[in-house]
């Protein structure tokens, strides 16, 4: 029974990630796309935790831990890059 629970939750996470991808592609502004990316990083973390607990291997959970801590560095880089570009466009 617990195997079925884990499998169905993983499918639910995949479903959420797909819906977020739609927002990521549609999003009219850069901020909308960043919001979708933010949700997706949380969903991927939940997926990794579910997978690791289901298999009972803590090496997967180590991957999830590192992903958790350094996940936001990606947004920081993207946000900084887009901000620089916005300022550049305003100047020119």
């Amino acid at each position: 029974m617990s195997g079925m629970l884990f499998t169905s939750m993983q499918w639910f996470m995949v479903f959420c990630a797909v819906v977020c991808t739609v927002r990521l592609v549609l999003g009219p502004t850069a901020a909308d796309r960043l919001v979708a990316l933010n949700v997706m990083s949380g969903i991927v973390l939940a997926f990794l935790v579910l997978r690791g607990v289901q298999q009972g291997r803590h090496i997967y959970l180590d991957v999830a831990l590192v992903y958790d801590i350094f996940g936001f560095l990606g947004f920081l880089a993207i946000a900084r890059f887009l901000k620089d570009r916005l300022e550049h466009e305003e100047e020119s």
Binding site: A30, N38, G42, G52, L61, A64, D68, F72, L76, A79
Partner: peptide, 27 residues
Amino acid sequence: RVIVIIIFFLFSAPTGSHIVARFAWNA
């Protein structure tokens, strides 16, 4: 390990949201 992940998530989740919100605010 799951407990450690939950504790670090309490720090990393608001940091990510804050970066996105601050980007929208500055834009």
